[in-house]
């Protein structure tokens, strides 16, 4: 008998430099330190089973990140949160724990807040006929027009809020948007990016 649980956490400050693979190991170790009744795989090399909803690129902060685990014993969601937080660092903190509602495959979009040293002409940038970015794939470099994929939520002073496709299908990395904007402006931009929300196909927040 094992009960799935979804753990929501934030990854901020120094923790934004932890790569996705490293984060996975970091969380496995935190779960071990927290001595929670978590299900481990039963193969030749047993390890704590956990799956992340949506990997976060290196250098981006996140305040609504999540991973799923399976609990093998009775323990309250508050206890899971408290034990895990005691085993984590300041920059990696559990916000809440709950039974999952949506499946990972239902994720479609993510919202990003971008603090830029230069936001001037951002709307002009978005109003171009096309925004071509180069993507490296196994077959070489391909060019994609990401203009139809970018939804601008707001520009307030130095802060830009974007909604971008995310999930198992289409994905656009906000860093790519910023570097395209940088190229458009002919300037090297300094950006602090935070993923602030993840949405499902029905438009509701991924929980």
């Amino acid at each position: 008998m094992s009960k799935p649980m979804r753990v929501f956490f934030r990854k901020t400050g120094r923790a934004k430099y932890i790569s996705h693979l490293d984060l996975q190991r970091t969380m496995q170790r935190a779960l071990k330190r927290a001595t929670l009744p978590v299900w481990e795989t039963e193969g030749f090399n047993p390890h704590i089973y956990l799956t992340f909803a949506l990997p976060l690129s290196l250098g981006i902060e996140g305040v609504c990140e999540s991973f799923d685990i399976k609990m093998t014993g009775e323990i309250s969601t508050d206890e899971i949160r408290a034990h895990l937080n005691a085993a984590l660092t300041e920059d990696l903190k559990i916000i809440c724990v709950a039974e999952p509602v949506y499946r990972h495959t239902e994720i479609q979009k993510a919202e990003y807040e971008i603090l830029l040293n230069e936001t001037d002409k951002f709307t002009e940038f978005l109003n171009q006929n096309e925004i071509i970015i180069k993507k490296k794939t196994k077959k070489g470099e391909i060019q994609t027009d990401i203009k139809p994929l970018i939804e601008l939520r707001a520009v307030e002073g130095e802060k830009i809020t974007l909604l971008l496709p995310a999930g198992t299908g289409l994905n656009v990395n906000p860093i790519q948007v910023i570097s395209a904007f940088g190229a458009f402006r002919g300037a090297e931009l300094q950006a602090d990016v935070t993923r602030t929300a993840v949405f499902c196909a029905d438009g509701k927040a991924f929980i």
Partner: peptide, 11 residues
């Protein structure tokens, strides 16, 4: 490369 090794803040 591997910026995590230059920022500390580990458990």
């Amino acid at each position: 490369q591997k910026p995590a090794r230059y920022i500390g803040g580990e458990v």
